[in-house]
Design a protein around this nucleic acid. Structure first.
Lengths: 244, 244, 244, 244
DNA sequence: TATGAATGAGTGTTCATTCAT
DNA sequence: GATGAATGAACACTCATTCAT
């Protein structure tokens, strides 16, 4: 199988699996058309929210006929969920790679925290989250599925990362799971609820995020950092001063 | 009778006189009927979300006629906001009084954090927040208004509390505003998003909340507590040990 | 019976007759309240038309309760018709007295034509006529009744007047009935349809009406005037010239 | 193919191609369905008036679904206006051609006056006018638009015709505009208001119209005819007598 | 008798979904 | 397989009328 883009491959596979899983007729197999539909749907759903988006809008935006959409997706909800699935993939993909490099701990946490905070509070992602949350009541498990495949995965990566740091003797943490949540929520301190409730109408600035994340990392390391982390950081500081 | 604004007083008096005169409350003034409507609306809105809830559903659930609802509330939105207002009132009323007592700092933070966390993650409040978030796309400002009258006020109370503790020399904080957000989000670490996305289907247990809050308070005080706080806590500990 | 104002007397009589005719219960007998209702109804119906006027509007405008209106009038339509009845009376009352004076013929026709044309094209009367016409389909005979008691009566007076002029040898007319219609319609030439279709949004000016009426009277007398009329007019002219 | 506006041409072409390609007319383009809707609408609007007619009634009467009506017409008003437009087209089309032949003046006026009077007082046209008048209050300009495209155009044609007759030396008229109105209203003398108020429940007979029109034309020509018209008519009379 | 709160059928319009072409 | 015209249930909201007080 020739590797093109991982995304496209993924899609094709999922499509096939899907059609097997659901026993759908041979129709609705063209991944190009599927993408076309999802792209149109994205523009409309993000722009208007789930309820206000009309299938006609999507039809127009996607440039395919009403009937065709219903060949690929059983109904509006299924289309929406498919879109969310894709969306998440395209946004958070690769974000966690930052955690794989075994750089300086504080640096890594700050870098990662900034990216995380920026992505989660970006207008687009907030919109999508709002829509998912709003639709959660109507479509059981949609929210749960979203959380599982999104925030949950990120959390797991963070747990792994923290465990590695513990191994390296840099951190000492009783409840690593909790610590991972604390880290994430410190990076978003105040922001998430402000954004999700539309109290903030635009995404926080780079500077604001940097300020919050640095403060959060300070707090986090003051709480969980070991003596050897402090030692290491002291050395780095000295080295840095020597350079300048 | 404490004079507030003359208008409000006047209105109240006229209403009362009216209802006495006629033995029937004025249109849109009967608190029993109002409650009846809001109760029906609560069940429907919470169950289906703002958009999917129909006024007919509410009519049926509340056991009043369509027309009557429109006597009490100008439209669907106003009914929804009234419901939310009531909800918030009935849930968060008095919660912040915990911050007024100048008790032992750590104790206070833990107590308050536990109540806060418990309330915000209670099934009912989560449901209401989901509905507000979902409605935010279509009704700009509804979410913002919700945030302002709810989370924002709580945040302000927390800022005041922290400033008092700083005054007392127990805390040293650069950015009090940020610290308040950090405190709240540490108390909810991991919980809020899990609940709001329905990944958790039931509210966290007392024990879990206690664990999270204690951990958060530890972290918070490790970061912002002064030497005199430590001193004070050491004395308490000794006193406590002596007792036992 | 003490003569107060002819209008009030009329009303009282009609009310009594009404209640006898319809066998209504003793309720709804107070002519003051009846007038109050009709006055409110007038403002609302004239302002909004039959369908758009709401009984609530009328309630508010009349300053009586909903129930009271329904004591005096069986329903919206009956109220409307009662209003129209009154309206016509108050507007056209006395207008035809102009025809009773045996003045100079041309003068009389011009004077009468001007008043007629002005009244019929006045905003108020046009509104009322529009409403009657619009309601005619829904309320059988309303239009006919309106025509009979309004335009028809005026027409009859005009026929009488023309016959008198014929008697005096001033006119020679084959079909007096037709001539009366011709006179009226010449006085309104072009105006009635323009007004009733709201092509003209405001009533024609005094000057315009004068121009139209004079032209119509000229035509009318050229067609139906006798030699002796011409003679008479010649004398008048001479007399007039002599004076100046 | 005569190029009018490129856009209009384009649209027309695309529509045609579309319907050929698919063997089905484009949305809102099927003239059969359009007629079906308008026919249903005609029955309902004429029967109940604009306000009282409900889209549900029309749906039922037309035998199409609610949605389909809204594909063909944006809203109730637009449907109503389309109906009126059609109505006018089908009734008054070609009527004014009578004025294009330069026949004997009196004959032409009589012929035209008869047709005009007959059409305007026909049950169908009266009904339509009643509906428009009734709707005028709520929908400003609807009546005006009706007047402009109907009576106003007819009036303009009459003005042109009279000017031609003046040119030919047959008439002498100071105010041609007024004269045109006078002619029309003489042809309808008494009829229009009787019909529009439903005092007359059926259209006037041929004979009655003939009588009224002849009388009106007599009057009109007595007022505006020149000596040369009289001369011409005398010659015709002699010629006619000679023949018999 | 007079009141006005309550009623609920009715309004014009939208839109997810179907199915003949 | 793809299309998009047609569908009709559903929507938020109004208002003539009733009837308990």
């Amino acid at each position: 199988m020739a590797e093109t883009t991982p995304d496209a491959e993924n899609d094709k596979c999922e499509d096939l699996l899907d059609s097997l899983r659901r026993g759908r007729p041979a129709a609705g197999q063209d991944p190009v058309k599927r993408s076309q539909i999802i792209d149109g749907a994205r523009r409309v759903f993000i722009d208007k929210g789930f309820e206000a988006a009309s299938m006609n809008d999507i039809t127009r935006e996607a440039g395919v006929s009403k009937g065709t959409i219903y060949v690929y997706f059983a109904n509006k909800e299924e289309l929406f969920e498919a879109l969310i699935e894709e969306e998440r993939g395209s946004i958070f993909k690769n974000m966690y790679d930052l955690l794989d490099r075994s750089d300086d701990l504080r640096q890594t946490l700050v870098k990662f925290g900034k990216v995380l905070s920026m992505k989660i509070t970006s207008a687009r992602v907030i919109q999508a989250q709002r829509t998912v949350i709003g639709a959660s009541d109507r479509i059981p498990d949609m929210g749960a599925r979203f959380y599982e495949r999104g925030p949950k995965r990120g959390h797991d990566r963070m747990v792994t990362f923290l465990n590695a740091a513990i191994e390296r003797g840099l951190l000492r943490i009783d409840d690593v799971d909790l610590a991972a949540y604390q880290f994430t929520d410190l990076c978003l301190a105040g922001l998430f609820r402000q954004c999700i409730f539309a109290y903030r109408v635009k995404a926080p600035s780079q500077e604001e995020i940097e300020h919050i994340v640095r403060s959060g990392v300070d707090m986090f390391l003051k709480a969980y950092g070991t003596a050897s982390l402090a030692e290491e950081e002291r050395h780095q500081m000295i080295a840095l001063e020597a350079k300048s």
